[in-house]
Design a protein around this nucleic acid. Structure first.
Lengths: 160, 160
DNA sequence: CAAGATTGACACATCAATCTTC
DNA sequence: GAAGATTGATGTGTCAATCTTG
């Protein structure tokens, strides 16, 4: 970010730099804030919550590993480690899909369902407090469209 | 996020949920994307780059630990570990501030300065490609103001 | 051999405890 | 005792290698 001699780098303008630093700061600080709230109120990390929440939203309380990874924006490897931990806590069980031997589904246990159900209300409240509630409709739209545009540019296969 | 019985939780609307998921996906995927580019082109993590860049922008190539932590949105602990690694690589040295015994400054070495200077151009290019270049002026403004508003709500002392 | 998923080794962040200087 | 910073133990993510099924 430091200006050098006569190269062709298009350095960021003052406004661009400020926008970028704001995005970076958010990127760094938001996850720990969410982790902290969920850890305190429900004993879950944000990522663990996301996994449980995505599965809990399915009609049969179950979801294929690779689909969870997509929905939670995570690598299959990260997901696998996390599901192993959740399984040890009895919140989830892994199940081979009959007829599709390579595929595994994670199925929420009753304990898992109770856990998400208890975690969700305070979490949603925090998400509202931190971000959603102070957004105008227009800001909400901008956030959605900009977010999706960037995601689309992020290497289709870059899961991590 | 799953609807329960008759509680008072204000669940997210469809639009709110989409905006939130877009933000979350960005939060999760952008850092690895930046890490990957910097690791390939310069052998640095994004956080290491941020530290070196912040220091390199000072007139005397040096900056107090706690100020680096603020600028890079990191905890002092994380910074300390990282500076230890950078110091081992000869990119930085730690220095006690004369007259203020408790304070330490990190000073960029010549090697460190060369390292950032080499890393910056491809990094800025990537930042432009992923986010900045496709933003309208208006979107840039919205991002900055929304970002700062959220940061302001993030517990003044929540550094991590 | 490709797709779906797991594993282990390693790197890094976090948390609580500690140290030093004021 | 508080501010500035460091340290060590622990937890979790990443990467490359592996395993299994189609």
């Amino acid at each position: 970010m430091t200006a050098r001699g006569a190269d062709e780098t298009r350095w960021l303008s003052q406004e661009e730099r400020e926008a970028w630093l704001a995005v970076v700061a958010l990127m760094i600080k938001l996850p720990p804030a969410l982790d902290s709230q969920l850890r305190t109120d429900a004993g879950l990390s944000f990522f663990e919550y996301m996994v449980l929440a995505m599965v809990s939203e399915q009609p049969d309380r179950s979801l294929q590993m690779s689909d969870i990874a997509d929905l939670a924006s995570a690598s299959l490897s990260r997901l696998s480690h996390t599901v192993t931990r959740l399984e040890k806590q009895g919140l989830l069980v892994r199940h081979r899909v009959p007829g599709h031997g390579r595929r595994f589904r994670a199925v929420l246990t009753d304990a898992g369902l109770e856990k998400v159900a208890a975690a969700a209300p305070p979490h949603v409240m925090e998400v509202r407090r931190l971000l959603i509630d102070d957004l105008t409709d227009h800001e909400l739209t901008v956030l959605t469209t900009v977010g999706r545009r960037v995601l689309g540019r992020l290497a289709p296969d870059c899961p991590a």
